[in-house]
Simulated assay, not measured.
Amino acid sequence: MIPSKRILIVDDEPRSRQGLAKMLEAWSAGRHRIRTADNGYEALRILESEPVHLLLSDIRMPEISGLQLAGSGERVSWPNQPAVILISGYAEFEYAQKAIELGVTRYLLKPVSREKLLDAVERALETEEQRSRLGLIEKVADPQLLTAAVHQLAVSEPVEEALRYMDEHLHLPFTLREVAEQIHLNASYFSVLFKEQMGMTFSEYVTRRRLQKAKEMLLQTRLPIAEIAERAGYQSAKYFSKIFKEYEGTSPGAYRSET
């Protein structure tokens, strides 16, 4: 089931707005939070101040239209980029064409049946969820690790075994020598072999993997930073924050709040 989402309904017609809200509240049964706004300015205030996952808006409204909301240049500063469903009482081609150009998920015509509305909402929320996952992957991705993953396709069996061991024990402190012993290689030879096959040193790989794991926890959990540091294999939260800032250019707390 898709986790709890915020759905914003924007319509200047009270009966239409209330009707849509009533249908979605009955369908949601408390799973999602349904918000309403009776004009574009109020909608923008909500979109700028809290994460909205689905924007359901009438196209034709005074001053700020649904199309303008969907194409707002302010979207980059919103806490979340919502999927968009536009509703119109006008079956005019230029509206639908413009909606498509703006990346609108669905375009519905009034009067909207309950079946069509709920089908569009469910599909739009699935689209938003997939987009959020991709955004998370892009945010935590490390270009150097992606390059290393390509190298990993052709590594020798000892290095492959070492990589498995390291990934399984990232939450624990370990040294190059200890990993070398696990795969029955001389530490000096293993160090040279690892860099040759992975394109980076052992210590850099471990640091980048631990930071990647920490970034995932920062974005996906509300765990305290000290606990995240420990789970990522750092015995000191202060040292973790120092390394994090060196690699990411910001502190763990700022990284989390920027999302």
Rank of each mutant, 00 (worst) to 15 (best):
K110Q: 10
K195S: 06
R177L: 01
I59A: 06
E168Q: 12
Q144E: 10
K116H: 06
L218N: 09
V155Q: 06
T201N: 06
Q97W: 09
E204L: 10
P51I: 01
E128Y: 11
G66S: 04
Q197N: 09
S4W: 02
I64N: 02
G249Y: 09
E138I: 03
A91L: 03
E13I: 07
E126S: 05
G30Y: 04
M1G: 11
D119L: 13
N80W: 07
R45V: 04
A180Q: 04
Q220D: 01
F244Y: 11
F202E: 07
Q197C: 07
Q130V: 04
G135P: 10
T250Y: 07
I228G: 04
L102G: 08
R256N: 05
S191C: 01
Q197E: 15
W78N: 04
E92K: 07
L102S: 05
R131Q: 09
Y205I: 03
L136Y: 05
M23L: 13
E122H: 06
Y95C: 07
G89A: 14
L54I: 05
I228V: 08
R17L: 15
I9D: 01
T201P: 03
D38P: 06
N186W: 14
Q18L: 15
G73N: 12
R123E: 13
F190S: 01
P3H: 02
P224T: 03
V140T: 15
R31F: 05
D142H: 08
I9Q: 00
P82H: 00
P158V: 13
V150T: 13
V155T: 11
K98Y: 01
E48T: 06
P158F: 14
Y239W: 12
E42K: 08
T127S: 09
G233N: 09
S113I: 00
Q97R: 13
A96Q: 12
Q182C: 10
Y90Q: 15
F202N: 03
V104K: 11
H151K: 13
R75W: 15
G19H: 06
H171I: 00
